[in-house]
Design a protein around this nucleic acid. Structure first.
Length: 481
DNA sequence: AGCTGGTTGTG
DNA sequence: ACAACCAGC
């Protein structure tokens, strides 16, 4: 039995279904809940993700207060701050849920080393253990492999094995059954949030704004319940950005206010739920892949694609970011992203395909933009999906699969309602022309009060030409590799 | 979880 | 005319 454990919360902002927390409160007499605001991470987070983080931390603090404690909030480099907090508290063990992203692994390695020197300094060389768990995935990296022991390079076989893989227990059954709830500490009253690199929830940027989702794991369970309620519509309507038929669980899964296992259990036996659970398998697969091949965050699977000749035109990239490409579905999605930090999955695919295959901009530019702005912006998922669109990743879309943004829009936003809600200058265009104002007759444009080039841009590229150019560039690269 | 340009089939 | 289908990218 440890005397005092620190639970370092990262992307697991919940007290239920949390193996690090559950283990710590079963194994320690006292636990301290810690969150570290890492400037290196926060600098790369857009306003909406910061606001969401603040809301979730506030809720976590309230849940801890209900147990008689408080959340300790500090800012700085975790490799410095975490051992500091442990020394102040006199803690002898650290608990956390791991994360498959390469940057997170490097950070945790630095913390491991810092704990070694802490042990040498203050514990008479008695090791200070850092217990890590995988409470952010259904199953941890390396647990689903081919017969050879590799991560499958193809999703479908991975999915079949994933489905048949029994879940290892999250919580070590050896923890003391007589002590299932430890005392949750409060910081000393004289320094409500500690000292030194202290910060407060009020100091968090965006802490006063309205979050995308209401904060906390209780609210997340409500959202899971709502997803269960509409799961039957999922397979028919999931591609329709004008309807609200997706699970909308990505934000809670990113912050860990929802356990992916609880989501899987709640969804797997309800009509339509299996298709959503399958998406959780994609999520685990990308975590598996990035764990096994960290270089995928920057590099293609197939070495020949390193030589892809991107156009990388700054003005076109900026038009894409701003939502002024002249393709209404693309502009609607990019404006929604900037305004809310969220975008429908189908629209993410359309705008990503447009950036990579119509503008020939390096997928890493788009990946960085998405990761910064998305409330659910997560390295493993974002990289996996951009590599998929670019055709450069494992089991990716074939290079010749190039979305026609107009065809996609007509198919998945048939009435144009999604476009109208984000591109107000086109609000009066009739259904027949809403997705291609550049091709609309002058009379139609005049009646809708749209002057192309003034109120709304002409298309910055011709899709047909762009398609031919991209096919040629990819083919050239493949032939030489 | 494609699109395009062609051919064949239908009325 | 306009589906339906197919190959090739």
């Amino acid at each position: 039995m440890n005397d005092h454990g620190v639970v370092w919360f990262r992307k697991d902002l919940r007290l239920i279904d949390n193996p690090a927390w559950d283990t710590a409160v079963g194994a320690c007499r006292r636990v301290t809940a810690l969150f570290v605001v890492d400037p290196a991470v926060m600098d790369l987070a857009g306003p909406h993700r910061r606001t969401q983080l603040a809301a979730h931390l506030r809720a976590l603090d309230e849940d801890l207060q209900a147990l008689g404690g408080r959340l300790r909030l500090r800012s700085g480099d975790p490799a410095t701050v975490v051992p500091q907090v442990m020394e102040e508290a006199g803690a002898d063990a650290l608990y956390a849920n791991a994360d498959a992203a390469p940057g997170s692994r490097r950070r945790d390695q630095r913390v491991f080393r810092a704990l070694d020197s802490l042990a040498a300094r203050t514990h008479g060389d008695q090791p200070v253990p850092f217990h890590t768990f995988w409470g952010t995935l259904v199953v941890p990296p390396r647990s689903v492999t081919t017969a050879k022991g590799d991560v499958s390079q193809v999703f479908t076989p991975f999915y079949k094995r994933w489905r048949d893989t029994p879940w290892d227990p999250w919580v070590d059954q050896r923890t003391d059954p007589d002590r299932s709830v430890a005392e949750v500490t409060r910081p000393p009253a004289s320094a409500a949030w500690g000292t030194g690199t202290t910060t407060t929830l009020g100091d968090l940027p965006g802490s006063g704004d309205d979050p995308h989702h209401s904060g906390g794991s209780r609210a997340a369970l409500g959202r899971l319940d709502a997803a269960v309620q509409r799961a039957a519509r999922y397979s028919d309507e999931r591609d329709r950005p004008d309807l609200a038929s997706t699970s909308e669980l990505s934000v809670d899964l990113h912050f860990g206010t929802l356990s992916p296992r609880r989501a899987a259990v709640a969804l797997r036996d309800v009509p339509g739920g299996a298709a959503i659970v399958r998406q959780l398998a994609w999520r685990d697969w990308y975590a598996h892949l990035l764990w096994e091949h960290p270089r995928l965050t920057r590099h293609p699977m197939r070495p020949a694609y390193e030589a892809l000749q991107w156009q990388n035109d700054n003005e076109e990239f900026e038009a894409w970011c701003a939502g002024t490409t002249g393709y209404p579905i693309v502009d609607a999605g990019m404006r929604q992203l900037a305004a809310t930090g969220w975008m429908h999955n189908r629209v993410r695919m359309i705008v990503a395909s447009f950036l990579v295959k119509d503008l020939l901009v390096d997928w890493r530019w788009g990946e960085a933009h998405f990761r910064r702005l998305l409330v659910d912006g997560d390295t493993t998922q974002n990289v996996g999906n951009w590599q998929w669109v670019a055709g450069t990743g494992p089991d990716a879309a074939p290079y010749f699969r190039i979305f026609n943004p107009t065809t996609q829009a007509k198919k998945f936003d048939p009435d144009g309602d999604f476009v109208r809600s984000w591109v107000p200058e086109l609000v009066n265009l009739p259904r027949a022309w809403i997705h291609e104002p550049g091709a609309a007759p002058d009379r139609v444009l005049a009646e809708a009060g749209v002057e192309l080039g003034t109120h709304y841009p002409r298309p910055i590229v011709d899709h047909g030409d762009a398609r031919q150019r991209t096919l040629a560039v990819y083919q050239h690269t493949r032939e030489r590799g």
